[in-house]
Design a protein around this nucleic acid. Sequence first.
DNA 1: ATCATATTGTACCATACGGTACAGGCGGTC
DNA 2: GACCGCCTGTACCGTATGGTACAATATGAT
Lengths: 187, 187
Amino acid sequence: MRTLYERDDVIPLIAEVFREHGFEGSSLSRITESTGLGKGSLYHFFPGGKDEMARAVLAHVDGWFEREIYTPLRDAAPDGAIAQMWRGVDDYFRSGRRVCLVGAFALDDTRDRFAAVIASYFTRWIDALRDALVRGGWPAAQAADAAEEVVAGIQGALVLARATNDTAVFGRALGRFQLRLQQRPPV
Amino acid sequence: MRTLYERDDVIPLIAEVFREHGFEGSSLSRITESTGLGKGSLYHFFPGGKDEMARAVLAHVDGWFEREIYTPLRDAAPDGAIAQMWRGVDDYFRSGRRVCLVGAFALDDTRDRFAAVIASYFTRWIDALRDALVRGGWPAAQAADAAEEVVAGIQGALVLARATNDTAVFGRALGRFQLRLQQRPPV
DNA sequence: ATCATATTGTACCATACGGTACAGGCGGTC
DNA sequence: GACCGCCTGTACCGTATGGTACAATATGAT
C-alpha cells in the first residue's frame, strides 16, 4: 500500500485553496491546514514553494481542460464535442458554484507571474472551439467571433454568479450560448 | 490654499492599488507608496484601516457607475442612455486596459467582506439596463436576458483581455453587444 | 534484518504585515 | 503672536508571512 498523499493527490486540494483565496491570500498555513501536510512535506513535493505549487495547480487545471474539452473540440465530431463542452464546463464549475482559477489569477498582478500559461489556457480554448464551429459549417470569421464570445461569456457568468451569489446566472448563460451555437451564425 | 490631499483626492489612487493587486495583495506599504501618504495620514482619513479604504473605494466606483450609467439608463431616453453606457464603459475600463475592481473582489473570499456592495453593483446595473430596453420596446423576458448577458459579457471580456494581454478583445465584445441591442430581440 | 531512500514534524529565520501611539508641524482664526 | 485643530512622520507592537535546516521517522527493496 502506498502513502496516503502523493504529490498528485495533493494538487487538487491546493487548487481549491488558490481558487477560494487567490494567490496572495493563499498562505502556507492555509495550505498546510487544508492538505493536512506540514511544511516539510509541502516543500519536499514543491521545492519552489508557493510559486511551484501554483504552477502545478495551473498545469493540473490546464491538463483537465486540454483532455476533456480542447482535444475533443479539435479532433472529434463538432456537435458531440461541443455538447461535451457544455457538460464538462457545467460539471467543472459546479454549475456556477465554483470559480475559474485561471480567470481569477488573470485579474490581479498574479497574471504577470504566470502570463504564458494563463494566456495559453484561453487562446487554446477559443481556437479549439472556433475550429469545431468551422468544421460544423460556420464561416471562419463568425466562428472566431462566436468562440471568443462564448469563452468570455463563461468567465463573465462565473464572476456574476459569485458576485450576486446566484448560481442560476451561470446556467442561464450556458443555455443561451448553447442555443446560439446551434443556430446558423447571424449576419 | 488647501492641503494637497484631501480624503477624496486619495481614493482614486488607492483604488488603482486595489485594482492591480487585489485586496490581499494591497499592503499598506504599497498604498503609502502610491499615495505618498504615511500611515499616520492614512489612518487619520480611514480609521478603519484597509477595510475602510476598500469600502471607500467601492463606494467611489459605485457612485461613478450610478451617476454615469445607471441613472441615465433608468431615467433618460433609452437609446441615448445605452449609447452613453457604451461610451462610459469603454472610457472607464480604458478600452480593456483596466480591470473591474468589483469583479476582481467578487472572485476570491474578499467577496464575503463586501458582499452587499458587490451584489448591488451588478444587480442595479442589470436592472437599469433591462428597464431601458423595456422602455425601448423589448419584451420584459428578453430584456432581462439581454441585460444579464451584456453585463456578464463585459466582465468576461475584461478577464479575457487581461488574460491574453490583448485589449482588442474588449472592443470587439462591446461592438457585438452594441449591435445586438440595436436589433429586435431574437426569438 | 539491513539499509538506502522517501517522507515528515519541529524549530527556527528574517522580513513584512496591519495596526497603534503620539509628539510635533502646519494651517487658519482671533 | 497665541491658540487650536487638522494633519503627518516616526517609532513601535504583536503576529503571520514564505522559506530553510535538519533530525527523526516511515517505507520499500534486498
